Simulated scan of single mutants.
Amino acid sequence: MVRPRKRRMVDFEHGLRHFKPEGDSPEPPEEVRLTIDELETMRLSYLEKLSQSDAAALMQIHQSTFQRTLKKTLEKITDAFVNGKAIRIEGGDYRMPGKDGTGPAGQGPVGGQGRGQGRGRGGRFGGPEGNCVCPACGHEAPHTPGVPCSQMKCEKCGSPMVRK
C-alpha cells in the first residue's frame, strides 16, 4: 500500500497565478504547472533565505522532501524559460494556518478543495493559544495571536519559529 502524501504547510498567498512569454504567436504557448507548495519552497529558500531544514520545518515536511520539491520546481521553471512556455500556479496538496488571523493576510484557509484543486484546504491549525517552538534549538515561547510563528525569531538562536 502506498503511503499517503503529507500535506504541506503554506503561509503565503500568491496573487499572480499565470505568467506567459511575450510574443505575437496566434497560438497560446504550452504551459508548465507549478503547485502552490512548489512555489512556497522557492519563496522560503530564495526570498526568505532559509536553510532547507528550517524551511522544511516551516512547511512541516522532511528536509529531503523539501529538497526534491525544490529541485522539481527549478526544473519546471527552467523548462518554461528555455522552451518559451507559460507558467501557471495552481493546486497542490497543501494547507494554510487557521482562520484565527495567523494565515497569509490574516485570512487563513478559504475553502475545502483538496489535492490539485486550487487553494488548499485544512482544518484549524494552531489558534490563539499554544506555543511556538524553535526547530533549531527547541526553545518554546507563547504564541502571539495574529502573528504567525514563522514571523517570530527565537530569542536564543534567532531562527524562525514554528507552531507546536
Rank of each mutant, 00 (worst) to 15 (best):
P128G: 15
D100P: 01
G91K: 01
D100M: 00
C132Q: 11
T78P: 00
A57Y: 03
E129A: 11
I89F: 11
K85H: 15
L70R: 12
D93R: 10
L70G: 06
G92P: 10
T144G: 02
Q60D: 14
G130P: 12
Q60I: 03
Q107K: 10
C134R: 06
V110D: 01
G101T: 09
Q113P: 00
A80D: 07
S51I: 00
K71C: 02
T78M: 07
I87K: 10
C132T: 12
V82T: 14
G138I: 08
V133L: 02
T69Q: 12
L70K: 12
V110A: 07
R88T: 11
L74M: 14
G108F: 01
A56F: 00
K99I: 00
K85N: 07
K71D: 01
A141R: 07
V110P: 00
G123T: 12
P97N: 13
H139Q: 12
Q117P: 02
K76D: 03
I89M: 15
F66H: 13
I61R: 03
G98N: 03
P104S: 13
G111D: 09
M96R: 08
H139A: 13
G84L: 08
F125A: 05
N131S: 13
G123N: 11
H139T: 14
I87S: 11
G122Y: 08
V133Q: 04
V147Q: 14
Q60R: 14
G127L: 08
G122L: 08
D54Y: 01
H139S: 10
N83R: 15
E90C: 12
P135D: 09
P145L: 05
M59N: 04
